[in-house]
C-alpha cells in the first residue's frame, strides 16, 4: 500500500467519521463545524483526484461562504437545549427509512457503473485543471451551464425580494 492509497483511506475514514458526527451531535453549532470538516476532507479527495480547482472552489464556496451563513443563522437563533422539539419515535423511524432508501438507491446505481481503471498511457494529467474544465463547461455543457446560471439568478432575485419584505412596505 503506497502513501497515496493510505492517505486516501485515512481521508475516507475522517470523512465518514465527521459526517456521522454531523448527524449525531446534539449541539447544532458542533454539527455545522463537523460539516465544515467534512467539506475539508472532501476537498482532500478532490486533490487526490487531481482536481485542485474543484477543491479550492469547494472550500471557498461551501466552507467559506455557505457554512458561514449556516453558522450565522444558528447563532442568531441561539438554540437552547430545552427548546429542542421532541422527536417522536415515528419521525425517527420515518427518517431511518428515508435515509436507508437513499442509500440503497445510490448503492444500486454505483454497483452497475463500470469505473475505468487507471491507465498511465491515456491519462491526461490536466484533466482536473482549470483549462480543461473551462473548455468542458463552455463547449460541451454550455446549455446546462447557462440554464443553471439563469436558475441561480432567479433564485437570487427571489431571495432578495423575500429578504426585502419589511413591515409597512409589502411588495407582494
Amino acid at each position: 500500500m503506497n502513501s497515496v492509497v493510505s492517505f486516501f483511506y485515512f481521508l475516507s475514514f475522517l470523512t465518514i467519521l465527521s459526517a456521522v458526527m454531523v448527524v449525531v451531535s446534539r449541539n447544532p453549532i458542533h454539527s455545522v463545524l463537523y460539516l465544515i470538516l467534512t467539506f475539508f476532507t472532501l476537498s482532500g479527495h478532490y486533490i487526490l483526484l487531481n482536481a485542485q480547482f474543484l477543491a479550492a472552489v469547494n472550500i471557498i464556496v461551501y466552507a467559506g461562504a455557505i457554512m458561514v451563513l449556516f453558522l450565522f443563522v444558528i447563532m442568531f437563533l441561539n438554540m437552547k437545549q430545552d427548546q429542542e422539539e421532541s422527536k417522536t419515535n415515528l419521525t425517527k423511524i420515518a427518517a431511518t427509512i428515508v435515509g436507508g432508501t437513499v442509500f440503497v438507491i445510490l448503492f444500486g446505481a454505483y454497483r452497475k457503473t463500470a469505473i475505468e481503471p487507471f491507465n498511465p498511457q491515456t491519462y491526461d494529467s490536466q484533466i482536473g485543471m482549470i483549462e480543461s474544465l473551462g473548455h468542458m463547461l463552455f463547449r460541451e455543457y454550455l446549455l446546462p451551464f447557462e440554464l443553471a446560471s439563469i436558475l441561480l439568478l432567479v433564485a437570487m432575485v427571489g431571495a432578495v425580494l423575500l429578504g426585502k419584505r419589511e413591515i409597512g412596505e409589502r411588495h407582494f
Binding site: 485542485q52 480547482f53 479550492a56 472552489v57 472550500i59 471557498i60 466552507a63 467559506g64 461562504a65 458561514v68 485543471m129 482549470i130
Partner: peptide
C-alpha cells in the same frame, strides 16, 4: 501551486 490565488482566497474565506 497553479491555483495559488484561489488557495489564498479559500484560506481567507475560512
Amino acid at each position: 501551486s497553479n491555483i495559488g490565488i484561489l488557495y489564498v482566497f479559500g484560506v481567507v474565506a475560512l
